[in-house]
Amino acid sequence: MVVNSLKEGLRDGGREGRICLTSATILSLSVYISAMAFGVSLLVITLSAVVTSGRSLKVLKAFFPFYVFFVITAIFFGFQVVKNLLAFMAVISAGALIYATNIKEVTGALLYLKIPQKVVSMVSLAISMLPLLVSDFNNMREIHNAKSIRGYYKLLKAFTSTTILRAISTSESLYSKSFSYKALGELRQPEIKDIVVFLLSLLILIYAISLEVSIWTPSST
């Protein structure tokens, strides 16, 4: 489910790459600065869902097994865990903001931020391999029909070795394509909608800071 939803993210979105990358960072920071406040987490989840046209919610759904883990933990550690769970979902939603753009614009944004070409080309290649790995994983699930721990073990073993062999094949292809670490990226002018997303992210950050400041400011009484 997680792998499938990652592939889902490869479909292009309409937002500008640099805006999405910075907004994702700002929103993650907001959750952290606000000490995982309910309001901030909810705002981040909502904004991401709106900007990605609901695709971030699909990613959240993919992480369902982790929520079960949180619920079990809540039995021992109480209500605080729910707050942590919401913050966890908010951070995933912030990351999923990348789904609102396309991969070429993300690599373009990384190059714009002066991340070395070598790193960017590696990121871009890893993403390009994703559809193949997703289809490999789905095919292996059909073959091994894992229903027991031993079945899952076999599936994992086959997936690991297939991934390694695919990586070797890809490096062979890179040699044949005279690979020289040049990364492909795209940049364009942000539209008004993009700027609105950025401003809303900034507002959430300001709200998060204000919450923290109000906790640390001594009351006058």
Partner: peptide, 22 residues
């Protein structure tokens, strides 16, 4: 297996990729 040759997500980038690397 041509799937193992893929280095880009878009067809146009895939076709241009070796020239760009050169």
């Amino acid at each position: 297996n041509p799937e193992e040759m893929v280095t880009c997500l878009d067809v146009i980038d895939e076709v241009a990729y070796p020239s760009i690397q050169q």
